[in-house]
Amino acid sequence: MAEPLTAGTTAPPTGLLSIENLTVDFHTPRGTARAVDGVSLGLFPGEILGLAGESGCGKSTLAMAVPRLLRDPAVITGGRVRLGDGDGDGVDLLGLSDEELRRVRWRDIAVVFQNAMNALNPVLRVEAQLVDVIRTHERTGRREARERAARLCGLVGIGADRLRAYPHELSGGMRQRIAIAIALALRPRLLIMDEPTTALDVVVQREIIAEVRRLQERLGFAVLFITHDISLLVEISDRIAIMYAGEVVELADARTILDDPAHPYTRGLLASFPTLHGDDTRLTGIPGAPPDLVDPPPGCRFAPRCPSAHDRCRAERPVRVTVGDRDVACHLYGPAEVTP
């Protein structure tokens, strides 16, 4: 694996979405926390990209920065988020006015939140919450919008009679299915799913994941899928990005991540979970805690916890480079110390 290296993949794939050098700061009373630090990531049409990492590493912040749904203390301080439109450069979402952004939201990028109980409006019927998004973005009559709502329900395996229900009258699994139906209402090209199944029990979780896979194959949308559960991710994703302290430290095919993780953090993360086949269940975990984002350590952010850290790791920040069929940001694989 020590073969020569090309420069880092800052040039993202030309595809559906390309996040380039995105930086998000939280202005807190203690100082500025850089929750997303120069992240570049691309999504191809129709692929499922998994995003994993410990709690607080910036997964949600990164995902919510794309449709610009972050609130007050969060400010996007750098980078571009281009949404491809088939030809040319696409549009930079960060440059859109509020009204232009409103039109892009849901039509191109829809979101499924962690807990549908909280994400659905408790005082509106499910139907109203489906119909309003259809009628806001498309010139549709009320009748037709209702029919479409019923069809969407069928798509996610829910009887149309449930449309008249209020969210509290549905089970957790049904609510999450409804949330998915709402997300698919406008046939978006990209679905952001931020831990969509953590609030559910394991059986329902599996069902929902299978459903998403099935729908994705049928409708061809791309998914940015966030979870803590790396075994789940391996199952569903085409590619996986591993985040640590605001950076993407490794990006590769799901199989590569599973079979041959390169970054010491990825290895630690995989070791923290029982493997899929359940034969090898040592839960070593990673000692220590993620760094304080207001005052991160110099050099590699993982160095203080890294079993293979050496002097260079504590002094110099590794850049992300392509090594074989993966991208990784680690001095173990990085270019030699003196580069022209």
């Binding site: 939280f26 610009r68 749904l69 609130r71 007050d72 203390p73 969060a74 400010v75 996007i76 980078g79």
Partner: peptide
């Protein structure tokens, strides 16, 4: 102080390129 979730007047995230 420690508000975990962002609050405030709801506008699209401010973009300030440095």
């Amino acid at each position: 102080a420690a508000a975990r979730r962002p609050r405030g007047f709801r506008r699209a995230t401010a973009v300030r390129r440095g």
